[in-house]
């Protein structure tokens, strides 16, 4: 698989505080990579490192195949756009002037395309209104518009829907999907609003205490989070035989516990087990959401850290 960004045991310390401790992640090309973690987990720190705003204490990262220690990293960064925390815009300038500023920073020969960018983020009708008078959602979209100057093929958005109203959240979501599908832009989106992220992400990276706990594809996550019946029986080997005969999908968790997927007639399974001398001890329906998946993951991480 081709990766836009990979990090290798990345560490960042601020005096005695370790914000990142050996973080390794992989952002596939064309993905919308949901970077999930609670506040203070290290999401923004990683983004600052990748954007070149700060330097790692240890470890390295590779952007478009160029290592961060390579002199060509500046050129590689030209292929990306980012909105880190608050949108980086001049409040005393109009939307058009903000774009013009970015065109000059990038040294683009003409202002060609500025109107298209403003239309894309639905700010083409703001006229002479200063960015300082924009709503939070408009400022966020202008920040994305500025990041879009120069046609980047990798965008980093740090908490893009933070503080937005429902309408603003929908607008940002649609914009991200549109850019990903129409322009094939790879996204790295950090967020702790998991419900929102689950609507667009194709890949996830779960971070806690400066470490990636797990990277998973959205399809795998859906599989892990789907509805099931957790059964507790005397012997899961007998249960497996019974379920195989019934053509059902299952996952053995231990000698006495298993998850059974899909629709099933519980009484039929219980009777079949009883006929083979295996009693059913309990059965409960389970559905894991992204939130509970994350909480379980963080719990495991903390447990591991505790040990």
């Amino acid at each position: 698989m081709e990766y836009v960004l990979t990090t290798n045991a990345l560490c960042k310390s601020y005096k005695s505080f370790r914000a990142l401790s050996g973080l390794s992640m992989h952002v596939p090309k064309g993905a919308i990579y949901g970077f999930v973690g609670k506040n203070g987990a290290g999401k923004t720190t990683l983004i600052r490192l990748v954007c070149g705003l700060q330097s790692p204490t240890a470890g390295d990262y590779t952007l478009y195949g160029v290592k961060n220690t390579d002199r060509r990293i500046g050129r590689a960064r030209r292929r990306m756009g980012a909105v880190v925390e608050n949108p980086s815009i001049y409040p005393g300038m109009t939307a058009r002037e903000n774009l013009e500023q970015q065109y000059r920073i990038l040294g683009l020969p003409s202002l060609e395309g500025w109107q298209e960018i403003l239309e894309l983020v639905r700010l083409s009708d703001t006229g002479k209104k200063k960015a300082g008078d924009f709503s939070l959602g408009m400022r966020q979209r202008l920040g994305i518009a500025v990041a879009l100057v120069g046609d980047p093929d990798f965008m980093i958005l740090d908490e893009p829907v933070n503080g937005l109203d429902p309408q603003g959240i929908i607008e940002i979501r649609e914009l991200i999907l549109k850019l990903n599908r129409q322009r094939q832009i790879t996204f790295l989106i950090s967020s702790h609003i998991l419900g929102e992220l689950s609507k667009i992400a194709t890949d996830y990276g779960f971070i806690d205490n400066g470490c990636i706990l797990k990277e998973v594809r959205a399809s795998e996550l859906e599989q892990a989070c789907r509805r099931c019946v957790r059964m507790e029986v005397e012997d899961t080997q007998i249960l497996a035989r019974v379920l195989d005969n019934m053509g059902m999908e299952y996952k053995i968790l231990s000698r006495t516990r298993a998850d059974v997927y899909g629709r099933m007639i519980l009484s039929a399974v219980v009777v079949a087990l009883h006929e083979q001398g295996c009693e059913t001890l309990s059965a409960s329906e389970r559905e894991e959401s992204l939130e509970s998946y994350y909480i379980n993951l963080v719990g495991q991480g903390e447990g591991a850290a505790g040990k």
Binding site: G52, R77, R78, V84, S88
Partner: peptide, 8 residues
């Protein structure tokens, strides 16, 4: 940040 991200 825009300037640094732009590779300057």
């Amino acid at each position: 940040r825009n300037k640094l991200i732009a590779g300057h």
